[in-house]
């Protein structure tokens, strides 16, 4: 495992825990897109179907269980426990606009036309665009709370670090996964505007506000 990969995974865990911490301590899901979280839940479930069929390492299995359970918990907090605080009126992105294309692409581009491989490819493609409802919501409301900004930064950094990991693996192991790399680049590019705002505003102690 490369250092970039480890840093990426830790960034991913940090993002998920930051979000849970924010919702739990403020007892509020305000400013959080339930649709994005619902799609991340779909991403983890469809990707980690191999959890009980192929063992890779304790680290691998632990992380998979952590991602699935934290994601289910997040969805539960947003749609059930703190439902009254969920800002559904601003969460207007249509999920089918990304789920259907991800599914069609997975049926066309996969490593084998089997249920597991199509499910895996679908998960990779859906993950790349699952953040769109959240970014759309930030744009629509014009701002994001600081902890939401930190969450988005950690989540965006995770795939960017994976790109460095893939470059490393290509050079040193000759390993190359075109589906993950393509989706990973798209995913990172989607955070471009946000990264810019994060560095120019949040880091300087201001709230993240989208200019009109």
């Amino acid at each position: 495992m490369t250092l970039f990969r480890l840093a990426g995974d830790l960034s991913h865990v940090l993002a998920i825990l930051l979000l849970l911490y924010k919702i739990w301590t403020t007892k509020s899901a305000a400013g959080i897109s339930g649709k994005t979280q619902l799609m991340f839940c779909m991403v983890y479930v469809t990707r980690y179907l191999d959890l009980f069929t192929s063992f890779i390492s304790v680290y691998n299995s632990t992380m998979k269980v952590l991602f699935i359970s934290a994601s289910v918990a997040t969805v539960y907090l947003i749609y059930f426990k703190f439902k009254a605080t969920y800002d559904g009126n601003h969460d207007t992105f249509r999920m089918e606009f990304v789920i259907v294309p991800a599914l069609i692409l997975a049926l066309i581009w996969n490593y084998a036309f089997t249920f597991f491989e199509i499910s895996w490819a679908f998960s990779i493609f859906l993950e790349a665009v699952a953040i769109l409802p959240q970014l759309f919501m930030v744009t629509k409301t014009g701002e994001a709370e600081n902890i939401t900004s930190h969450y988005l930064f950690a989540l965006g950094s995770y795939r960017a670090l994976y790109i460095l990991n893939w470059i490393d693996r290509y050079y040193f192991e000759g390993h190359w996964d075109p589906i993950a790399v393509t989706a990973g680049i798209v995913q990172t590019v989607l955070y471009g505007d946000f990264f810019y705002l994060y560095f120019t505003r949040v880091i300087k102690g201001r709230k993240l506000q989208v200019l009109p």
Partner: peptide, 10 residues
Amino acid sequence: QPAAASKDEL
């Protein structure tokens, strides 16, 4: 080296 899925990754 054939293209392969990074199943060891998360």
